Computed example of a mutant assay.
Amino acid sequence: MPNFAGFITIDPKRSIGSIVAHVTMEEVATDELHITEHPVELGANITDHAFKKPADLVIRCGWSNASLGGVLSGVKGLVSALTGGDAFGSDYVSGIYNQLLALQESRIPFDVSTGKRLYTNMLMRSLSQTTDEKSEYTLMVTAVFKQVLIVQTQATTLPSKENQAQPQATGETSDTGTKQVATAYPAPGGWQPPNG
C-alpha cells in the first residue's frame, strides 16, 4: 500500500475569503487613478491633484456536485433525506452558494486571491448565478468586488491660548466665515453727520 504522507500539498492560489473555486473562467481587475481635470499650477506637486481609487474585481467561477466534496456532500444529503431531514439546499453547490451569500451579507472586509494578485479589504458588491437544464448540478457565479480603503486618523488637542507665548500665531483656528471687501459709495446728496 503506498504511503501518501510524504506528498507535498500546494494550496490553490485563487480564493474568495476562505472559499476556493473548482474552476475560474475569468478575472477582470480594474485599478484606476482619479486625475483632476482642473488646470494645475506650473511647478505644483502633481500628486496633490490625483488619487488612487479602490480596486474593482469581477470573477467568474464555479463549483460542481461531481467533485469529491460534492459527492461527499451528496451522500450526507441523501442520508438526511432518508432519515426525514430536508433535502432542499443540502447539496454541495447549494452549500457553497449559501457561504457566498453569507460572506456578502456579513459586510466584513476579506481577502480575494487571484492568479495575479492578492486583494485586501474587499467587499462583494454583487453576486449573480443562473441555473438552467445544463447547470442544475453546478454553481456558476459572477461575483463583483470593491476594495474598501481603510485609513487611520488621529485627533489632537492644542493648549489653550493662555498657555501660549504667541496665541495669535499658534492658537487654534476658528471658522469666522467668508470675508469680502465691500466698496463704499457716498449717499446721494453727500455726507450727513450721524446726529443731524
Results as ranks from 00 to 15, higher is better:
39 P>K: 14
57 L>D: 03
63 W>A: 07
89 G>D: 10
50 A>T: 11
37 E>T: 12
48 D>H: 13
82 L>S: 11
47 T>H: 13
62 G>K: 03
72 L>P: 00
55 A>I: 03
57 L>Y: 06
76 K>L: 11
34 H>T: 10
63 W>L: 07
61 C>D: 05
39 P>M: 10
83 T>K: 12
78 L>K: 10
88 F>C: 06
65 N>M: 03
99 Q>F: 00
72 L>G: 03
44 A>M: 05
96 I>C: 08
68 L>W: 04
98 N>S: 15
49 H>C: 11
61 C>E: 07
82 L>T: 01
91 D>P: 09
76 K>E: 15
41 E>W: 01
52 K>A: 11
99 Q>C: 05
84 G>R: 03
36 T>K: 10
75 V>C: 06
99 Q>K: 10
68 L>T: 14
60 R>L: 06
39 P>D: 13
71 V>N: 10
57 L>I: 04
44 A>Q: 09
37 E>W: 00
100 L>M: 12
66 A>T: 12
94 S>K: 03
87 A>N: 05
58 V>P: 02
58 V>R: 15
66 A>S: 12
54 P>T: 10
41 E>R: 13
69 G>H: 09
75 V>G: 03
99 Q>L: 09
74 G>M: 07
49 H>E: 09
42 L>E: 15
84 G>C: 02
64 S>P: 01
65 N>I: 07
87 A>C: 04
86 D>E: 14
39 P>S: 13
64 S>M: 02
95 G>R: 09
40 V>T: 11
100 L>S: 09
50 A>W: 00
55 A>Q: 12
32 E>Y: 03
48 D>K: 13
46 I>W: 04
57 L>V: 05
41 E>V: 12
90 S>A: 14
43 G>A: 05
65 N>F: 04
99 Q>N: 12
97 Y>I: 00
56 D>C: 05
100 L>E: 11
49 H>Y: 15
53 K>F: 00
42 L>A: 13
40 V>M: 06
95 G>T: 08
33 L>K: 08
36 T>G: 06
62 G>R: 05
88 F>S: 15
39 P>C: 07
35 I>Y: 01
54 P>A: 07
89 G>S: 09
91 D>G: 08
94 S>W: 04
80 S>P: 03
88 F>V: 14
50 A>F: 01
90 S>R: 05
42 L>Q: 14
78 L>F: 10
86 D>K: 08
98 N>R: 08
91 D>K: 06
55 A>W: 01
54 P>M: 02
62 G>C: 10
43 G>M: 03
39 P>W: 09
40 V>N: 10
